[in-house]
């Protein structure tokens, strides 16, 4: 357990609908193990249950069944998120705040002192290339800038585990390249990164291991070539996911 950053055991989520309707099974007995210091790709088509998994891990929703641990601490305990940074799928942030205010607020929420928060905000604005926009309100940011400020808030507490939900979406090719470089840099600092995507090429280049989720079911977990084979491409991935999806249904 010491080398495991994240573990889930039979994690299941059913969403109840109206009276008389069948509940939607969004996640079925998910068993994941992510080791410390690895980049872990969480792949699957839209609606596969990737965001649901992140929502459970971050305590937004409760699992119908199963358990999960972050660095050995049960996710029911809010302290399990002390060493975690999270980037939500759609980076909607507080429009009224200026970039620096926003990061300072997050730094304070993460437990930093006023002085540390000020220094950390300045450092992160430099890191994500938004230094010039420190006084700009977030409401005026483009999608790419929102993604960058989102990454900065996820890093504010210098986390050991980063959960990034579709971090590449909405980014142009340069932005995607920068994001890949940032993830690799975080790995070199010994951090664990779990990130979701529905695009294989975003994942295969940098991930140590991947898990593939289709229709709420885990259909494979391991090294990229073990799970997807050697001749991998987005087309093959789509075909296989389609096949597995059919098999899973």
């Amino acid at each position: 357990m010491r080398d495991i950053a994240l573990k889930t055991l039979n994690l299941t989520k059913e969403f109840k609908r109206g009276i008389g309707s069948k509940p939607i099974l969004s996640l079925q007995r998910l068993n994941l193990e992510v080791m410390r210091g690895e980049i872990f790709g969480y792949l699957g088509p839209n609606g596969a249950g990737k965001t649901t998994t992140f929502k459970i891990l971050m305590g937004f929703i409760k699992p119908t069944e199963g358990r999960a641990w972050i660095f050995g601490r049960d996710i029911k305990d809010h302290r399990s998120r002390e060493r975690v940074g999270f980037l939500p799928e759609q980076p909607y942030f507080h429009d009224h705040l200026r970039a620096e205010e926003f990061l300072k607020m997050h730094a304070r929420l993460a437990g930093l002192s006023r002085r540390e928060a000020r220094e950390r905000a300045a450092e992160l604005l430099r890191l994500v290339g938004l230094e010039r926009f420190r006084e700009t309100r977030i409401g005026k940011f483009s999608r790419g800038m929102l993604q960058r400020i989102g990454i900065a808030q996820a890093l504010v507490n210098d986390p050991d585990l980063l959960l990034l939900d579709e971090p590449m979406s909405g980014l142009d090719p340069i932005g995607r390249k920068q994001m890949r470089e940032l993830i690799l840099r975080l790995k070199s600092q010994g951090k664990t990164v779990i990130y979701s995507s529905h695009i294989l090429s975003d994942v295969e280049a940098i991930c140590d291991r991947v898990a593939i989720l289709v229709g709420g079911k885990l259909i494979g977990q391991g090294k990229v070539e073990e799970v997807l084979g050697r001749e991998r491409s987005d087309e093959i991935f789509v075909r296989r996911v389609g096949f597995w999806g059919g098999e899973a249904a």
Binding site: M58, G59, H78, S80, P88, Q90, H94, H106
Partner: peptide, 12 residues
């Protein structure tokens, strides 16, 4: 608007 997500995951 889901702005709550980026705050509520903090350890509190």
């Amino acid at each position: 608007r889901k702005t709550i997500y980026s705050v509520i995951y903090r350890p509190m």
